[in-house]
């Protein structure tokens, strides 16, 4: 069971979330100009990363917001959770970020 920290609600069990696949897959700037192969790559082709991987999650039984999670696909460790629109943290930053978040939720959130 993963423990994922929703950027709005704090740490909750994985069962409260829905998975949404790879994050930061940009919609093509002018989709009409793509040929079939390029369109297929946009729709179906995803990275198969070994290591830190940015993916989308949705807190479906909580605040129902989509956000991004940086997860290590080798250790299954959740390195960071960040809101849509925020840049993807680097793995080293993410580790520090996760530690800071844990402290904030333990102390700051009453």
């Amino acid at each position: 069971m993963l423990l994922i920290s929703c950027p709005w609600c704090g740490p909750r069990d994985e069962t409260e979330y829905h998975y949404g696949g790879q994050a930061h897959v940009a919609y093509p700037h002018s989709p009409a100009d793509l040929d079939d192969r390029q369109w297929a790559e946009y729709v179906f082709y995803r990275d198969n990363t070994k290591g830190p991987f940015a993916e989308r999650w949705m807190h479906s039984t909580g605040c129902r917001r989509w956000f991004n999670v940086l997860r290590d696909t080798v250790t299954n460790e959740v390195l960071a959770a960040y809101r849509i629109g925020e840049p993807r943290p680097e793995p080293q930053q993410a580790a520090a970020h996760a530690a800071a978040q844990a402290v904030a939720h333990a102390g700051g959130e009453r």
Partner: peptide, 10 residues
Amino acid sequence: AVSTQVGPVP
């Protein structure tokens, strides 16, 4: 008050 799960029920 929080939105969560009790058993499998949201």
